[in-house]
Amino acid sequence: MPRFGELEAAIMEVVWSADKAITVREIRDRLARDPAPAYNTVLTVTEILYRKSWLVREKHGKAFRYWPAANRDDYTARLMDEALDSAEDRTAALVHFMETMTPEEMAEVRRALNAAEKAGQGSVHTTGRSPR
């Protein structure tokens, strides 16, 4: 899974930050860019994100309203999973990554793992993907 392109990332930030489903016009108006991209450009990239299943939409009058299909943490987890899949030794790569974590982050990981173990899940994610 490739990272979002620059405009894709900006659109996702707007949608993730919105407190409700929003239209392409609202997305364009909220983009922090000067000059703002053309409406058709924002529409095209928003539709691409919808086809990639990052956005959900519903018809609202003549326009569609969009909202995220997954949150920022889900996106980050997918990127991490993809990166680990590219490693020759997935476990070694994960251990190396964890060695860069702060003590506070490590404590959070331990808490999450303990909670997952107590729940009998063996996994702490909620994306619906099966754990490796």
Rank of each mutant, 00 (worst) to 15 (best):
P37G: 01
R3G: 09
A32M: 12
D73E: 14
T127L: 00
V124C: 06
R28T: 06
R30N: 15
T46W: 01
A115L: 13
A9P: 01
G61A: 00
A70H: 03
H60V: 08
E26H: 03
E99H: 13
I22M: 03
R110K: 14
A119G: 04
S17A: 15
E117F: 13
G128I: 00
T23F: 01
R51H: 14
E105T: 08
A77P: 04
G122I: 01
R28K: 10
V109W: 06
D74S: 06
E104W: 07
T41P: 02
I11E: 02
E108R: 15
A70C: 03
K59C: 03
P68Q: 11
R132T: 07
S130P: 05
A10Y: 05
I48D: 11
D73Q: 12
R132N: 07
T76Q: 15
R72C: 04
G122E: 00
M106N: 05
V124D: 04
L55M: 03
S123A: 14
A93K: 04
V56Q: 13
A38M: 08
M12C: 05
T44D: 15
A32C: 09
A115H: 11
T127Q: 00
E117Y: 14
P2V: 06
A10H: 07
G122P: 00
A119Y: 01
L94I: 06
K118S: 14
M98N: 07
D19L: 06
E8V: 02
A38F: 09
D81Q: 09
W67L: 03
E82N: 10
Y50M: 05
N71Q: 06
A63S: 11
T76C: 12
E108W: 13
R33T: 07
R90F: 02
L94Q: 05
T127E: 00
A92D: 10
T76V: 15
V124M: 09
W54K: 04
A70P: 00
A77C: 08
R33P: 05
A21M: 02
S53A: 13
N71C: 06
L43S: 09
I48G: 05
M1T: 11
S123K: 12
A36T: 12
T41D: 04
R33L: 15
M80V: 15
F97G: 11
E82Q: 10
V14H: 04
A119H: 02
A92P: 03
R28A: 06
K62T: 14
R129M: 05
N114I: 14
G61M: 01
T44G: 09
A9I: 01
R72A: 11
R25V: 11
A112H: 09
R51K: 15
D74P: 01
M1I: 09
A69R: 04
D73G: 07
P68G: 07
E99Q: 15
F97I: 12
R132V: 10
G61L: 01
P131R: 04
V56Y: 10
D19M: 06
H96Q: 15
L79R: 15
T100R: 13
E108N: 13
K20M: 07
